[in-house]
């Protein structure tokens, strides 16, 4: 039984095809990540699944309910945290929580055990206006409000965008805690490094899904040899490396460049050809999700 089933879902805004026949399924209790750059169609997918948008084609089910026909029933079963902070900035922390609890027809106490690990971190500021909270606290409040009615599926649209590294890490710990409670979580992020915290991930780009697998499975798909090359003359090196025999792709990766090669590549010859880069440093590298993404995107 799947918590989310998406079948050939399509949506366009005028001439822009935001989602072009997307299919995937999320198991119950799974922490599923949508990884992709801005404009990949992640937010559109969230808005379709939370019944805020109507699809142009295809179908989707959340908790076994159709997003078009059973939209009302879905609304009381899902929690949604939009990418942009969208609680009432002029209401206090506790007023926001109480307000959303009441809209779902539940009391705060009924779900407090679920919300507590998150809410207790912002509880000292419960009388502060939500608009005056820091970024990390806003995000915790938004998560508390999205959980207050004990949803079976949680949709988090780029929850960690614009949040500092420590809070981001804490946030993923909280998600792991929620997963323990059996809540299915669909989360999107533009940060490839967060993908490893998910059970499975889908790489998306320009309205398509490029591949779905576990984080290690995705990385395992990358079978070509990979090198990291480095020189002080970063940009010149990139240009020169791309012209060499056997180089499939060369792209900046942090402080070095990643070099994807095929069978015809000869390391000795490569070093010789680039001998005018005196400080050239080359070593084999382990592929990451980002490497897989770039490779899939090129295809």
């Amino acid at each position: 039984m799947y918590a989310i089933e998406v079948n050939n879902l399509a949506k366009s805004y005028g001439r822009v095809q935001a989602l072009d026949g997307v299919s995937f399924a999320v198991r119950r209790g799974e922490l599923f990540g949508l990884i992709g750059p801005d404009g990949a169609g992640k937010t559109t997918l969230f808005r379709l699944l939370t019944t805020l948008l109507l699809p142009d084609g295809g179908e989707a089910k959340v908790d076994g309910l159709d997003v078009v026909k059973d939209y009302l029933a879905i609304r009381s079963r899902v929690g949604y945290m939009p990418g942009r902070f969208s609680l009432y900035p002029d209401l206090s922390v506790e007023e926001n929580l109480g307000f959303f609890a009441a809209l779902f027809g539940v009391g705060v106490e009924e779900s407090y055990d679920l919300v507590e690990p998150i809410y207790k971190q912002i509880a000292p500021f419960r009388t502060r206006r939500a608009g005056k909270l820091s970024g990390g606290m806003k995000q915790k409040l938004a998560l508390s409000c999205a959980l207050i009615h004990r949803p079976s599926v949680l949709f988090l649209d780029e929850p960690t965008t614009g949040v500092d590294a420590v809070s981001r890490c804490e946030f993923w710990d909280m998600l792991a805690g929620l997963k323990q409670r059996g809540i299915t979580i669909l989360v999107s992020t533009p940060y490839m490094d967060e993908a490893s915290r998910c059970d499975r991930i889908a790489l998306c780009n320009e309205g398509h899904i490029l591949g779905i697998d576990t984080p290690t499975g995705i990385v395992g798909q990358f079978r070509s040899p990979l090198y990291a090359i480095r020189s002080r003359r970063t940009f010149a090196l990139l240009e020169a490396a791309r012209r060499q025999q056997g180089v499939v792709q060369c792209y900046p990766f942090g402080e070095s460049h990643h070099l994807v090669v095929d069978d015809t590549f000869d390391k000795e010859q490569f070093v010789r050809a680039l001998s005018d880069f005196e400080d050239l440093h080359i070593e084999p590298a382990t592929p990451t999700i980002e490497d897989v993404f770039i490779k899939l995107m090129k295809r």
């Binding site: 019944t51 805020l52 609304r75 949604y80």
Partner: peptide, 11 residues
């Protein structure tokens, strides 16, 4: 402010 979005996902 986007708050209507949050209201719209409620029943």
């Amino acid at each position: 402010s986007g708050t209507i979005e949050q209201i719209n996902v409620t029943p």
